Computed example of a mutant assay.
Amino acid sequence: MSKQETIQCAVFGASGYSGVELLWLLHNHPVFDVTHAFSSSAREKAEPISALYPQLAGRCEQILQPWHSDLLPQLAQQVRVVFLALPHEASAELAPKLIAAGLVVFDLSGAFRLGDPLQHQAAYGFAQPKLSNDVPYGLAEFTQLKGDEPLVAVPGCYPTAAGLALRPVLALLAAHTTPIVNAVSGVSGAGRKAALHTSFCEVSLQAYGVAEHRHQPEMAQTIGRDVIFVPHLGNFKRGILATIYAQLAEQVSSDMVAEAFAACYAEQPFVRLVANPPKLQQVVGTPCCDIYFKVHGNQLILSVAIDNLLKGAAAQALQLANQYVGLPPTTGLTPSPGAVV
């Protein structure tokens, strides 16, 4: 693909929180042009996205359409890139059809993230579709796309935070250590669908999915070793704050940790090494990941913050798409057009 030309694209699941953030980013992008936006649920008629998100009135009047499979031939003639912000099983069903039609797919669901089909079955409760090509796992700062992959799996929000914090220092950790990841997410991580347990009046700070969250095997896959992962639901709208503990190898100093982070992220504009434990307000509405570390004896303590809907979903998808078509990773992401939700 040429970075000089306009690239027509479609967003599936544009009615959801991650989907509308992605739609808004693409709406403001200088190269990608959204020509189709589809809802993640069955709707009887087309309507402007501002009908669901009034804050976009006068700024984005993209029409949100119901999807029908008989639209695929027409879609394949009109767009080149498709972003899926759909439920996992919906993406698993639709993605192979889009690939067969010659479209490039960036999938924000968990349908293709795990390399082990048995782990996928255990985590998601359905069989992972078999594709003829390997699916790259798109942790953007550690991924090199060639630009000919038919599908790219966009990582989950929790694994993105943990992976960016731990991967630069893996060689400095004790061989036997199992990192502990204690993370809190805002309620937008549960999606837009109404549910009592994510109703803002019902939410209190609470652990959930202890030792069984589907992001645990993805997190372990991302960093290359087992982890203990305890997610929490917080009574705030968006963002993830993770505190991570791991034992360092003998003779590893704070300077060595600092050097490892600096060497890894010197050329990565969206990872910021900060001098104090980050606050969510530093990253919410941005495509950035802020990382702080402290060495206490032989223990490494990491504090990492991301926006779950941007760096943990929509912004990372666009960062990968930029790389795919040969654009700088910051294209359409800086300065940020601002968050929707």
Rank of each mutant, 00 (worst) to 15 (best):
C201E: 12
F200Q: 05
L172C: 06
S185L: 15
A175L: 11
G191N: 03
V181G: 04
N182L: 08
S188M: 09
G191P: 01
A190E: 13
L170D: 01
A194L: 05
L170G: 01
V184Q: 11
C201A: 10
F200L: 09
V181I: 15
T177F: 04
A174I: 00
V203Q: 12
E202Q: 10
N182A: 03
T178M: 10
L173D: 08
T178V: 15
L196Y: 07
H176Q: 14
C201V: 05
H176T: 14
G186S: 03
K193D: 10
G189A: 10
R192V: 04
S188F: 14
G191T: 02
A174M: 00
C201N: 06
H197W: 10
E202W: 02
G189W: 03
V203W: 12
A195L: 04
L173R: 09
H197K: 02
T198G: 00
G191F: 01
V187P: 00
V203C: 13
A175T: 12
P179Q: 02
T177P: 06
T177N: 05
L196Q: 12
S199C: 05
K193V: 07
S188E: 10
G189S: 12
K193Y: 07
C201W: 05
G189D: 03
K193F: 06
S188P: 00
V203K: 13
V169A: 06
L196G: 10
G186K: 00
L173C: 13
S185D: 06
A171N: 14
H176S: 14
N182S: 13
L196V: 11
A175I: 06
F200S: 07
A171R: 13
A174G: 12
E202Y: 05
A195D: 02
P179L: 02
P179E: 04
A190H: 11
A171D: 15
T198K: 11
A190N: 13
V184A: 15
G189Q: 10
T178G: 00
L173P: 04
R192S: 08
E202R: 07
A174P: 01
V169C: 06
S188G: 01
L173Q: 11
T177K: 06
T178I: 15
H197T: 07
